[in-house]
Design a protein around this nucleic acid. Structure first.
Lengths: 130, 130
DNA sequence: CGGTATCCTGGATGATACTG
DNA sequence: CAGTATCATCCAGGATACCG
């Protein structure tokens, strides 16, 4: 699933183990969107400009299998499904924090034109949770 | 270069910006190895079981271009080249710390058989650099 | 030793169409 | 709305061979 293709328990260090869970092209963005608020499938799709249903669904299923995302299906008509982060997902997101900060500080092309940016770029910076 | 293919400055958040720099299959491992000590090309190759020269060279060139790795070529016979981390590389490595800790704690298949593991799994945890 | 030059492949990603 | 099914594509990564 990940980027490394090193899945079968042959990880060299914790980082590439974690990387395998977020290696998908949209996974950190999903984590990101979901950490804001639970989202329905369609909402999520709108949050991630350019993702296709197939890929989104597939990523979501993988992340669910990895225990990062919780899927709640309501048996209604029309159907409604809500995705949210599990505690594990939240903690992963927090572990990703410093990397995000580093990227914001060190990667050019991050400074977005005002009105063009996602304001939610300032994150909680929690340290107490899992 | 990265995993996202979102390079041209169209990053959604700092995390995927950073991810783009470490998305290569061996990049975090290179960062990892180099944070231990500067390495020659051949050493590096031995550190990363399974990497090919082409890919290693290519990753190294990208990381050099990204300002993460410094390449020092000594004009000797036989040729000698030493790779080391730049301050930027060191700081990225540090930003990766929490993710590594998360992976070690949360991903099964990480608990290595004694003697099979890399003991260098405990890292400096420096906070003052870069 | 420290690479570069080619060719090739798998699998992740994308496009499109269809369904309960 | 929330997906699944199929087919097409792209390219990072790998294999191999050769060079200064």
């Amino acid at each position: 699933m990940g980027t490394t293709g090193r899945r079968p328990g042959a990880y060299v260090c914790g980082i590439d183990a974690a990387m395998d869970l977020i290696g998908g092209k949209w996974k950190v963005l999903i984590l990101w969107a979901l950490h804001e608020r639970p989202c329905r499938f369609g909402e999520l799709r709108r949050e991630l400009p350019g993702v296709t249903e197939k890929v989104l669904a597939s990523h979501l299923r993988e992340m669910e299998a990895d225990g990062l995302v919780h899927r709640e299906a309501y048996d209604e008509v029309p159907p409604r499904v809500e995705y949210s982060l599990t505690a594990r997902g939240v903690s992963l997101n927090e572990a990703l924090e410093p990397l995000g900060a580093w990227g914001r500080a060190n990667v050019p092309g991050m400074s977005p034109a005002p009105g063009q940016m996602r304001e939610d770029d300032d994150v909680p910076l929690v340290t107490g949770a899992a």
